[in-house]
Design a protein around this nucleic acid. Structure first.
Length: 223
DNA sequence: ATTAGGATCTTCT
DNA sequence: GAAGATCCTAATG
């Protein structure tokens, strides 16, 4: 096997400047490295969700720019971190062109480094599998909160780095798609669109509403 | 394995 | 004033 040959690099700004539906599956298999705190934590992104800016009724940006959504309207490659349910933080990567307000929600990951640190942050975790199994669990494991809202992933001194394996084969991952969580389609007709992406059969992918929503295999259409 | 209810507070109507 | 891009615990099959 090729133990050597992996080369993890941070992609350039232009890599983030594309449509959310295109970038969301590409983010699968890439890694996040957090140096927040004493011990670095690294994970492989296993589940993402696309939010297509101000034209997407499911997006926070749909009602226009507010204090909360300001970061989404800015430059791609920054972190949009929001607070929800009175206690949880969720992280997005801003994408598309400035002003578009598109972003990718990071829904789940597989911890590959700093498991001890992650577990310290998530005492309720029962196994390595569920450490970052869910958007709020993912941020908790990495130590991300409101402090990181607006953070530039491409800053030389960023405490949260995104890296891709430049030697990996394109299309080497089996990717599934399905409806977003609790978000109806852009037509407002209650139809669900497959704008969620995950690595097929990966055990760290978040689980909710068990058993009822079949996963679709076709990518969602833009409008 | 699955479900129900509670926690907790910002954001925008 | 209500809902929210969620998680945890406890109880039940």
């Amino acid at each position: 096997m090729h133990e050597t040959g992996s080369e993890f690099l941070t992609p350039p700004r232009a890599w983030f400047a594309r449509d959310a539906l295109e970038l969301a599956p590409v983010l699968l298999g890439t890694r996040l490295i957090s140096t927040i705190g004493t011990e670095p934590v690294e994970l492989v992104i296993t589940e993402t969700e696309a939010y297509r800016g101000r034209h997407d009724p499911g997006s926070h940006a749909f009602r226009g720019m507010t204090a909360r959504t300001e970061v989404m309207f800015g430059e791609p490659g920054h972190l949009y971190v929001y607070f929800t349910y009175g206690m949880h933080w969720c992280a997005n990567i801003v994408c598309g062109r400035p002003g578009e307000a598109s972003a990718i929600l990071l829904r789940a990951g597989r911890i590959v480094k700093g498991e001890e640190q992650a577990k310290r942050r998530r005492p309720a975790s029962r196994s390595i599998r569920d450490l970052a199994q869910g958007p709020a669990r993912l941020t908790k494991s990495l130590g991300i909160d409101g402090e990181q809202n607006g953070l530039d992933l491409l800053s030389p001194s960023t405490p949260v780095q995104l890296v891709t394996d430049t030697t990996a084969e394109d299309g080497g991952l089996d990717i599934s798609t399905g409806p977003r969580v609790g978000v109806s389609g852009p037509g407002g007709d209650g139809e669900f669109f497959p704008w969620r992406f995950w690595i097929t059969d990966d055990q760290t992918v978040s689980r909710y509403r068990p058993g009822k929503k079949p996963a679709l295999r076709q990518p969602g259409r833009p409008e």
